[in-house]
């Protein structure tokens, strides 16, 4: 027998005896376990607000605590202006990005040499880029997270290798909470999932030395989210 068969046989054998239900210790009554619904999850998770304004405010508050730089902009021209400001402040001479409607426009406006990850790239070159600019699938108000996938955000490395990750998003991409974010992933990719789905929450961080927060442990030291 293969190890797969061996292990599954042991599992099946073990499960012939039923286990007590969760929360049933000492004879307390417990309902048979059933999988929670999305509504169950929503009911226990942190509040997300009712209106778009409340949710933007929540996302902004979370970003603040996480030390992400979140900017809500009026339109695409403000976005270009914000990018140019960053370029000037950080002295970018080139950027890394990927093909996409928002990123194409942004790169064009910046007018700098661009390393496009989806065109095939050298990882040492990407490592030297001062910034990675990507799109995303969603912004999650509840947690201040940015949802990216290997398909929506130029692969796996672009959003973690350069020291600064700039995310471009549209207002419509803001979702209330994690349940809605996972529902969106399922709906958008259910037939054929990307090989990586990632919730990025704040810049890379560590507290491994005396529980003191340091940003930029391995991934980006800065996370900027530009939303219009």
């Amino acid at each position: 027998m293969s190890e797969r068969e061996n292990i599954l046989a042991r599992v099946k054998e073990a499960l012939t005896v039923a286990a007590p239900l969760p929360g049933s210790h000492h004879g307390a009554h417990a309902e048979p376990a059933s999988l929670p619904t999305q509504e169950d999850h929503r009911r226990v998770l942190p509040l997300v607000g009712e209106s778009f304004e409340e949710r933007v405010a929540l996302f902004a508050k979370n970003s603040d605590e996480l030390r992400s730089d979140f900017k809500l902009l009026i339109d695409q021209s403000e976005l270009v202006a914000a990018l140019n400001k960053l370029r000037a402040a950080e002295g970018w001479t080139r950027v890394a990005s990927h093909k996409g409607s928002l990123t194409d426009a942004a790169c064009q406006a910046l007018g700098l040499p661009v390393l496009l990850t989806d065109a095939g790239f050298d990882k040492t070159e990407l490592e030297k880029c001062p910034v990675g600019i990507s799109e995303c699938d969603a912004l999650v108000a509840q947690t201040g997270s940015v949802l990216v996938t290997s398909r929506s955000a130029g692969g796996r490395a672009l959003s973690v290798l350069p020291p600064h990750h700039v995310v471009l998003a549209r207002r419509g991409q803001l979702v209330p909470g994690l349940p809605e974010a996972f529902a969106l992933v399922k709906q958008k990719y259910g037939a054929d999932y990307p090989s990586m789905i990632s919730f990025i929450t704040g810049p890379s961080r560590t507290g491994d030395i005396e529980r003191i927060l340091v940003l930029g442990a391995h991934g980006p030291k800065k996370l900027t989210i530009l939303c219009f």
């Binding site: 942190p46 979370n62 990927h98 990850t117 989806d118 095939g120 790239f121 990882k123 947690t143 997270s145 290997s150 398909r151 130029g154 692969g155 796996r156 490395a157 672009l158 973690v160 994690l178 999932y193 990307p194 090989s195 990586m196 789905i197 990632s198 919730f199 990025i200 929450t201 704040g202 810049p203 890379s204 961080r205 991934g219």
Partner: peptide
Amino acid sequence: QLISGYNTMYGGPRQPGEADG
């Protein structure tokens, strides 16, 4: 923390059309 910095689901090696992995 309310959520960790990176929560990532991996479902396979680099897929056709993906930039890297």
